[in-house]
Design a protein around this nucleic acid. Structure first.
Lengths: 243, 243
DNA sequence: GGATCTCGATTGTCTATACAAGTGAATGCG
DNA sequence: CGCATTCACTTGTATAGACAATCGAGATCC
């Protein structure tokens, strides 16, 4: 495509980044004027439709507001990260300005446990892929990810290197998400979880059980356990008047 | 502007209407293929960018999902009502075939705590309404609901009888939900919570902090605490690949 | 001064085209 | 048959321009 740089970042995304950075650093305070579409065209040497797209998407995200005939302005800062949207924990940690790393504890093929067979629609004698990963926020263990993956949907799962790419990233690439089921529970950690997350047995944990689907069927079944004192699920949910 | 009709409806909006009508009447069932951008160009005599905009906006709304190189398809209808769906706990309990009852512990006006003032956009010297309710599933205490309500939005809150109608039901009627923020945490119960939910201090609890908005502004700020061993949040979430 | 008009700046809609990139099915080869 | 290649189709990004609609400010007129 026509790209302004080699990194693969679309131009409209670069403009969005620029605007967001100006807002985050305080250069452009609340209600201050943002460059017009025409001005961004000159500044970034792009067409008006490209500059417009950047402003448009930021408006949809609630970062800006615009008025025809007047201009575009910085909106009031509101909490707006997305709720149980399927988020990549690595992105989440980096969004906080922290460093994410992952420790791969296990990556193997297993005979399918009954619960998993039911969730993924497999027979119990069929093998299922299994990965166990500890995610770190800086040096603190944050989340234990135990994931069962359907070999029919993702045959090359065991060949991946999950130190540099989270299972979520890989699965998103090879089997685009179409649906997901979730269960959120508060539990006490078992011995195994205590060890990997460096917890005492009395610290409550948040456990998210997530089953993901792609067009073809069930892809993976994951247990994501985090220390309650270190993690919260949060976000913003828009209610559509139609629904 | 260049408009295809006199009604002032933009062309891209007309295409959206057409697609939505086909889905609503069942002509285009779930996961069925939607006309490609090129096909819509021919059908509506518009440029590709206009047809694209219609498909794009419907995708952002969760009505369609698209895959590069493949096509556009009808998403599952349940999309919006997802996880952390705004559910009424009474309905939830009755859906399980159990009996719901509520015990009103407190219903009063209070000076606004700082945290609540921030959440609801009130001054700290202004009063705020407060209700404290224990919800029972059959005879078992299930959830402790501590709720702060914005008097400007719901002036008659203190006059309600919350034994026969949950705050959620009443608020839904007088200030229809438009948005909500959520935080989900795993916590250990304090002494007060232990007493009302009949818990020991080591039982983990799920705490949902929810702030609701209606068109006019922030309506209420609620802490919903449930015993982890008795309650789980669950749901189904459709993912729009664009997000 | 006060009301009205004009005009420039800005956003909104739309066209026609171009190239990039991903998918899946048909094709051809060993 | 199995495998790789090719090709058509589809969506993604981007351009350069056009006209429409709205608002605010300055100019004009009374």
């Amino acid at each position: 495509m026509q790209r302004s740089n080699d990194s693969g970042t679309p131009k409209f995304a670069a403009i969005k980044e620029f605007i967001l950075s100006q807002i985050e650093t305080g250069n452009w305070p609340e209600h201050s004027r943002v460059p017009s579409e025409h001005a961004l065209c000159d500044q970034f040497a792009v067409s008006r439709m490209t500059a417009r797209r950047a402003l448009q998407e930021l408006t949809e995200q609630g970062v800006l507001y615009r008025t025809q005939g007047v201009g575009s302005f910085v909106a009031s800062p509101k909490s707006q990260s997305a709720l149980l949207e399927i988020r990549n924990i690595a992105d989440e940690i980096q969004a906080r300005g922290h460093f994410h790393s992952a420790q791969l504890v296990q990556l193997t093929s297993l005979p399918c446990p009954a619960l998993v067979a039911g969730a993924l629609g497999l027979n119990r004698n069929e093998p299922v892929f299994f990965s166990l990963i500890v995610h770190y926020d800086n040096q603190t263990p944050l989340q234990l990810e135990a994931r069962y993956v359907n070999p029919k949907m993702v045959p090359l799962y065991l060949q991946q290197d999950f130190h540099y790419q989270t299972p979520h990233e890989y699965l998103s690439a090879v089997a685009p998400l179409t649906e997901a089921d979730h269960i959120v529970e508060a539990v006490l950690p078992d011995e195994f979880t205590c060890k990997h997350l460096k917890l005492t047995p009395h610290e409550p944990c948040l456990r998210l059980t997530r089953r993901t689907f792609s067009r073809g069927g069930a892809v993976s079944f994951a247990f994501l356990t985090s220390a309650g004192s270190r993690y919260r699920l949060g976000g913003h949910l828009n209610i559509s008047p139609a629904g």
